[in-house]
Write a protein that binds this DNA or RNA. Structure first.
Lengths: 244, 244
DNA sequence: TTGGAATTTGACCATTGGTCAAAAATGGCT
DNA sequence: AGCCATTTTTGACCAATGGTCAAATTCCAA
C-alpha cells in the first residue's frame, strides 16, 4: 500500500488530539484527583467518544502516566534552560531551584500524581512505551543536576572527598521533591508557618547545598541579586520571586 | 436502656476486629496498592462480610486513611522514644532519623499511601473523625522534632539567627519524607547508585543537619559509635544499621 | 424458653473502566 | 460525481466493584 499524501496530516491530527486529551486530563487530575473523574466525563470534555480515547491510551492509568510524563518533560526543559545560566556552580544550582518553582507554578498537579503512579498496581497498568518515556524524562532531570555537581567538584566549589556526585544529586532531588509535596499540604503549611510554599522550597534547597558544603554558602553571600538575574535572564515574567 | 454487662466486651471485640481489618488492609495496600484490591477480597481475608466492614469505615478511602493513621501513630511513638535518647541534641536528632528507618522497615507501605491520601477526592471521602486522628498523629511527629530543634537553639548547637525553629523542622521533615519516597523507587536507586535505601535516607538527614549548622557537624565528628548506641539503647534488634 | 434488640449478611444497585461490532467518514479511482 | 474499500469513530454493552439495606441470624435478659 502506497503512503498516502494524507498520512502525514492524519498523524499530525492524531498527535494534536492526543495533546488535547492530555491537557484536559491534566486539568481534571489537578482539580478532582485521579478518582474524581471518569473517562466518559473526559470524552465529553474533549468532544470525542470514549472509544476514541482508548485509541490513544491503554487505560486510565496509562493516560495519567502520559499526563505526568508531559509535565516531567517540561520540567526537564526548564532544568536544562536553567543550567545554562551564566554564573558560578552554586548560582546555577540556584537557577535549577528557580526552575522548580517555575515548574510547580505551571504544573501544580504533578507531584501528587507522580507519587500515585509509583504505587503498586498503577505503574503496571500503563504501557511499557509510556513507562520508558517517563524514565527518559526523569533521566534528563537527573543528569542536568548531576552535571552541575560534577562541575562544582571539578572547580572546587563542592568537596570531593565527602560524597560521590550521585549521592549529592540524590540529596538535592530528595529535598526538592519532598519540600514540594510537604509545602503543598494545608496542615503542614500551618505548622511550619509557611505563607509562600515556593520560598520554603528554595530555602530548603539552599540549606541542602550548604550541607553539602557548596560554596559560597547561602549565609555567607547575598544571593538576592542572583535571584533577580535568574528571573530576568531565564524566567522572565516569573511570579514566584518574593523576598523571604 | 441499661448498660449491659456485655457492653464493654462488645466494644473490645469491635475494636479488636477493627484492628484486624486495618492490619489486613495494610498488607493489601503494600502488596497491591489502593486499586489492586477490593472490599470483597478484604472481607474474605478477614472472614467477615462486606457489610460488616462498612460498619467500621465510611468508605474504602476512609479505611485507607485509618491504615495510614495507624502507621503514623507508630511513627510518632518511635519518634517520641527516640527523642528520649540520652545525648547531645545532634545525637538525638540522629536518633529520630534512626526511628525513621525503624518505621520504614515496619511500614513500607506508608509513604506512598499517605501521598495518595492527600490528593483531591481522596481526603474528602474519609470521615472527619479519621481526618482529625491523622492530624493529631502528624502533629505529634512534628512537635517531637520541633522540640529538639528549640532545645538545640537554646543550648547553642544550632544557630538562632538564620531561621525560625519551624523552618528548620520543615526542612528536616521534607528531606526525610522526600528521601524515603525517592529511595523507594527502583529507577532512582539505579541512578543514585543506592544499595541500601535507609543508609541514603540517614545520610540525607545528616546533610540537612549540617546545612542548618547543627554542631557537631557530621564530617567533623564520628557518629558510628553514637549509631551503635542508638540501636542498642532505643531500637534493640534493628536490622537497618550497616556501615555506609 | 422466649421475644425483642443488636448484629451480620449477601443479594442487589449504580457507577465506571474497558470492548467491539456497527455506523460514519474518508479518499482514491473511474 | 458516484462508487466502494479502507480507516476512523461511536456508543451500546459487559464485567467489576464500591456501597446499601432488608432479611436472616445471633445474643441475652427475663
Amino acid at each position: 500500500m502506497p503512503v498516502s499524501i494524507t498520512t502525514a496530516r492524519r498523524a499530525r491530527e492524531f498527535a494534536a488530539r492526543e495533546e488535547l486529551i492530555i491537557r484536559e486530563a491534566r486539568k481534571f487530575l489537578l482539580e478532582r484527583g485521579f478518582q474524581g473523574w471518569n473517562m466518559e466525563d473526559l470524552a465529553q470534555a474533549v468532544e470525542y467518544s470514549k472509544g476514541t480515547l482508548y485509541q490513544h491510551f491503554d487505560s486510565k492509568e496509562d493516560l495519567a502516566l502520559a499526563v505526568c510524563t508531559g509535565s516531567l518533560q517540561q520540567r526537564a526543559d526548564l532544568f536544562e534552560r536553567a543550567s545554562n545560566f551564566k554564573g558560578g556552580t552554586r548560582e546555577r544550582i540556584r537557577a535549577i531551584c528557580c526552575a522548580c518553582c517555575e515548574f510547580a507554578t505551571a504544573h501544580p498537579e504533578y507531584f501528587h500524581a507522580d507519587m500515585m503512579l509509583k504505587s503498586a498496581s498503577f505503574w503496571d497498568k500503563a504501557s511499557e512505551e509510556r513507562r520508558e518515556d517517563h524514565r527518559i524524562q526523569a533521566g534528563r532531570c537527573w543528569r542536568t543536576i548531576q552535571q552541575i555537581i560534577i562541575e562544582a567538584q571539578a572547580v572546587g566549589d563542592l568537596p570531593r572527598d565527602r560524597f560521590k556526585p550521585e549521592e549529592a544529586t540524590f540529596a538535592l532531588v530528595s529535598v526538592t521533591v519532598g519540600s514540594h509535596i510537604m509545602a503543598m499540604e494545608g496542615d503542614m503549611r500551618v505548622m511550619a508557618g509557611i505563607t509562600d510554599p515556593l520560598i520554603a522550597v528554595r530555602r530548603n534547597g539552599d540549606l541542602m547545598c550548604d550541607g553539602l558544603g557548596w560554596k559560597p554558602l547561602s549565609f555567607e553571600a547575598d544571593y538576592a541579586e542572583t535571584d533577580r538575574r535568574i528571573v530576568r535572564e531565564v524566567f522572565p515574567g516569573a511570579t514566584w520571586l518574593k523576598s523571604a
